[in-house]
Design a protein around this nucleic acid. Structure first.
Lengths: 124, 124
DNA sequence: AAAATGTTTAAGCAAATGCTTAAATAATCG
DNA sequence: CGATTATTTAAGCATTTGCTTAAACATTTT
């Protein structure tokens, strides 16, 4: 760690407060960052967006819609599932994926903004 | 692309609608995904959180607060700057970073939830 | 001008990411 | 059962990420 970089005019008290503050929220930050990094991929964000509109979709549907191979989709779904953002339900030989409402709250506003964005432009 | 995976019971009309829908929002998705991936890193999310509380901070402050080397911090700030989430202002030899309000809207709700989280627990 | 301070850049490297193709599981159907 | 369909897993590989250390810049101080 660089030891010389304690600014001459640094507000020592402010920095100390920030350290305490950030340590308090660190656990929440870790959880949220995980959800954001999962959503911060174009393909996965598209999947989440589609699931928010269609309620449930299978890997095959998503493969068709997003024009990607099934394994590629499946691996993204696996990450989303392991991250708790989606859940799956097997019906016959097809597996339907859907959002886990409780864990999707963080990115709900984001999905909503995308949804709104898609509406007709209001008069400017 | 796998050609055999058109589900027997697939809702062809639904899939077609989804394809059109997703193509319409694709540009927005790309922009949002970029912001989310930038925020989806613990260190950068901490930086954004701290900037939302302290208004402006320099690399040196952040280095002290987050207990990381200055170059490591600087590289994160560079990404945030290039992604348009933060801006910088030089005062003497120190550089102050602050949030770009217009471009931070997507993750504002996230930061807010972290802030709320940090308050005293309400009686359950 | 020389030294010190604050920041950025560069090079190197280990680990993570995201795809591909091929193979392995599962469930349905003839 | 054997073939087909839907999904998952595995292995390989190119790219990206995020750190480290060292060096380069820029500004202020002595």
């Amino acid at each position: 760690m660089s030891k010389s970089c304690i600014r001459v005019f640094a507000d020592v008290k402010q920095i100390q407060q920030c350290k305490e503050e950030i340590n308090k929220v660190a656990p929440s930050i870790a959880i949220v960052a995980k959800a954001l990094s999962l959503s911060g991929n174009e393909v996965r964000l598209k999947i989440l967006y589609l699931l928010s509109k269609e309620t449930k979709l299978c890997p095959c549907d998503l493969s068709d819609i997003l024009e990607m191979t099934v394994p590629a989709i499946s691996q993204h779904l696996k990450k989303l599932r392991e991250g708790g953002l989606v859940t799956s339900e097997k019906v016959g030989q097809t597996v339907f994926y859907s959002l886990v409402e409780d864990n999707i709250q963080v990115i709900k506003p984001v999905l909503k903004s995308l949804f709104d964005n898609n509406k007709k432009e209001p008069v400017s």
